[in-house]
């Protein structure tokens, strides 16, 4: 097996372990979305998706 894959795996494992408690805390304590909040996120994200498709067509 490629040694670099093992190092990457260890690195990713460390990142997951490091982020796990933070993610759990944020999932529990993040404020709840109000009406229209997700709409305000999905609109710009949809623009990003469209823009990336445009970039792919350009290259």
């Amino acid at each position: 097996m490629d040694w670099s894959k093992i190092i990457w795996a260890v690195l990713l494992g460390a990142m997951i372990l490091f982020l796990w408690p933070r993610a759990k805390h944020m999932l529990k304590n993040s404020p709840k979305a109000e009406q229209g909040d997700w709409q305000a996120v999905l609109l710009p994200i949809a623009f990003v998706v469209g823009f990336v498709i445009l970039l792919i067509m350009m290259v």
Binding site: L19, A23, M26, L27, K28, S30, P31, E34, A40
Partner: peptide
């Protein structure tokens, strides 16, 4: 956009 924190971390 603070409400996105948990979703983004997950």
């Amino acid at each position: 956009f603070n409400f996105m924190g948990g979703f983004l971390m997950a």
